[in-house]
């Protein structure tokens, strides 16, 4: 096998492995989102769930929701909150003990990707 061919093969293998790893990570984040966030936000992130609707939960894909910064979202995910918005009580549990930094970052990227 010539050197350029070997190089192409190695590069292809590397890219395929990276792509496989990405796919695995995406699946893991998708599952994390469904388990940790989906119950209230809905697995589509629209917030129209038994828990989300009475809180007036916003669609995660909306411009309004997406206007939040990564830091705002990180704080909400890690610490949770209890507040009132538009006359409706809103509450979110913090996931400090359940999600590590990498998972939180992956969730933020996941929710950013929902942007319309």
């Amino acid at each position: 096998m010539t050197t350029p061919r070997r190089f192409t093969l190695a590069l292809s293998l590397l890219l395929a492995t990276a792509s496989l790893a990405d796919e695995k990570a995406d699946k893991a984040t998708d599952k994390t989102f469904r388990i940790k966030c989906g119950q209230c936000h809905g697995k589509d992130g629209k917030g129209q769930t038994k828990k989300g609707a009475p809180m007036g939960m916003r669609d995660m894909a909306s411009a309004d929701f997406q206007a939040g910064s990564d830091d705002d979202w990180r704080k909400a995910i890690v610490d949770g909150f209890k507040r009132e918005k538009d006359g409706k009580p809103q509450e979110m549990d913090g996931f400090r003990e359940e999600l590590d930094d990498a998972q939180v970052d992956a969730l933020i990227r996941y929710v950013r990707a929902l942007k319309k």
Binding site: V78, G80, F81, R83, K85, R96
Partner: peptide, 8 residues
Amino acid sequence: APVTPPEK
């Protein structure tokens, strides 16, 4: 953990 950040 803080649970009541003000709504921005």
